[in-house]
Design a protein around this nucleic acid. Structure first.
Lengths: 157, 157
DNA sequence: CTCCTATTGATAATGGTTTTCATTATCAAT
DNA sequence: ATTGATAATGAAAACCATTATCAATAGGAG
């Protein structure tokens, strides 16, 4: 039986050591905030949140740690076109798992969707396989976003 | 028989007037550069190119015009994660037409691919339709990018 | 040709992200 | 527990793509 979430050390403890990095208080605080939300937080959002539980944190450390987490594959970095990057835990309990985004070009609202159409996943892996072969490319990730007007903005016109 | 490209006024002349904008020399120069390449140019790339044929151009005008062209749907704006936006003509002779990107996370190289798998287009429109209905979202565009290691970088390891 | 207005471009400002560097914390070996 | 090598931190400054400001200029309807 797999270990339940919420008991024992968080799942990421081991991975840090494996990669040769130290799991420090600032880093844990950042992971803590990320794991307790399913929102799309900016670096400053995270800074403000972490600041509550670890007041001496610096914005620099936020950026550095996020870079590390992205590199380790724990965190995904997104650009929704508003000039600041957004970060989401890409694995873990509160995470919705892999998902794509609907971005409203008018108000900037972002909707996650995980309920893929049946064939969507299947086609995606097929496409990745095909592209890998054709372009001799080792594909490790993909980004899919749809742009348009959300319910509110659509009716506003 | 459709008008051949290269003769008569460029295809975009009319569209400007329709939208209530003036077609000025700086704007034409920018469109000229964009229509003669299939690369992913940054604002500064475009600035340097246009500067050759219209030396008094200002970087400000580049940004303003690109914003206009994006808004009019002539140009697509992309973010490949290197901190600067890239622009491509989304219609016209030299344009490869709608395409997706393979982005190398190591060297930043970008490969366009237009030769979609047969089912890809079909599924995409099906997905858009489904999402529009489910989230009451008017989808007008999408972005699909695959990340990984290009041939060169893959072998370098 | 003239006037009104959109457009331009030099400059300064903005703001998210990175760099720098002196200080501090971590962990393995003692 | 103590030490020492090294990684990590954070305040401040630097960076740099993009935007705002504003006086000067150009387009085009009349």
């Amino acid at each position: 039986m797999p270990k339940r979430f919420g008991v024992g050390p968080p799942w990421w403890h081991g991975r840090f050591r494996e990669c040769g990095y130290r799991l420090t208080t600032p880093r844990e605080s950042i992971l803590d905030v990320l794991s307790k939300t399913s929102k799309h937080l900016s670096a400053e959002d995270i800074y403000l949140e972490v600041h509550n539980i670890y007041p001496t944190i610096g914005l620099t450390t936020i950026y550095r740690t996020l870079g590390l987490l992205v590199q380790m594959g724990f965190v995904s970095k997104f650009d929704f076109g508003d000039g600041r990057a957004r970060y989401e835990l890409s694995m873990g309990p509160k995470s919705v798992g892999h998902h794509h985004h609907l971005v409203c070009t008018s108000c900037g609202r972002v909707i996650d969707y995980t309920d893929f159409i049946e064939e969507e996943k299947e086609l995606l892996s097929k496409t990745e396989k095909e592209l890998s072969k054709r372009y001799n490319f080792k594909i490790s990730n993909h980004l899919i976003q749809f742009y348009g007007l959300c319910e509110r903005c659509k009716n506003k016109k």
